Amino acid sequence: MNDKKNREPMVIALATGKGGSMKTTSAVFLACALVDQSRGEQRALVADADVQG
């Protein structure tokens, strides 16, 4: 039985120290694909942090 209230959130991190390696683009595409795969039943939060400012 799939009970949405008891599901733990999934955390996926994309990290590298190199700039310009498409981390943000990949994260957004991944989030969109996961929501699309669930047919809109799941939500995704994308948080982007730039350590270089």
Score class of each variant (00 low, 15 high):
Ser38Asp: 04
Gly19Ala: 05
Leu34Tyr: 01
Lys18Gly: 02
Ser38Pro: 00
Val35Trp: 00
Ile12Asn: 03
Thr24Trp: 03
Val11Cys: 06
Leu30Lys: 04
Gly17Ser: 03
Gln52Arg: 13
Val46Arg: 01
Gly19His: 05
Met22Leu: 15
Cys32Asp: 12
Glu8His: 12
Ser38Tyr: 03
Ala13Trp: 01
Leu30Ile: 09
Lys23His: 02
Val46Asn: 01
Ala47Thr: 10
Lys4Gly: 07
Asp3Cys: 03
Lys23Gln: 04
Asn2Tyr: 13
Ala49Met: 09
Gly17Arg: 06
Asp36Gln: 15
Ala31Thr: 01
Lys5Asn: 13
Lys5Gly: 07
Val46Pro: 01
Glu8Asn: 10
Met10Trp: 12
Lys18Arg: 10
Asp36Phe: 02
Asp3Trp: 04
Asp36Ala: 14
Ala13Gln: 07
Lys5Met: 13
Ala31Gln: 04
Ala47Arg: 06
Gln52Asp: 11
Asn6Lys: 09
Ile12Val: 11
Pro9Leu: 11
Gly53Phe: 01
Arg7Gly: 12
Met1His: 10
Thr24Val: 11
Lys5Pro: 05
Gly20Ser: 07
Leu14Met: 12
Gly19Asp: 05
Ser21Arg: 05
Ala27Ser: 12
Met22His: 15
Lys5Glu: 15
Thr24Pro: 04
Lys18Gln: 03
Asp48Thr: 04
Met10His: 08
Thr24Cys: 08
Gln42Ile: 15
Lys4Ile: 14
Gly19Val: 04
Leu34Arg: 01
Ser21Tyr: 05
Gly19Leu: 10
Glu41Ile: 03
Leu34Trp: 01
Gln37Val: 06
Ala47Pro: 00
Ala33Tyr: 05
Ser21Ile: 10
Thr16His: 09
Phe29Gln: 14
Glu8Leu: 15
Gly19Arg: 08
Met1Val: 10
Thr16Cys: 14
Asp36Ser: 08
Val46Gln: 06
Arg7Asn: 03
Ile12Asp: 00
Lys23Arg: 03
Glu8Gly: 04
Arg7Lys: 09
Thr24Phe: 06
Asp3Thr: 07
Gln42Phe: 13
Ala49Phe: 10
Ala44Leu: 07
Ala31Leu: 03
Gly40Phe: 09
Gly19Tyr: 02
Met1Cys: 12
Lys18Ala: 00
Asn2Cys: 13
Asp48Phe: 01
Glu8Trp: 03
Ser21Gln: 06
Arg7Ala: 15
Glu41Cys: 06
Arg39Gly: 06
Lys5Ile: 12
Ala31Asp: 05
Asp48Met: 02
Gly40Ser: 05
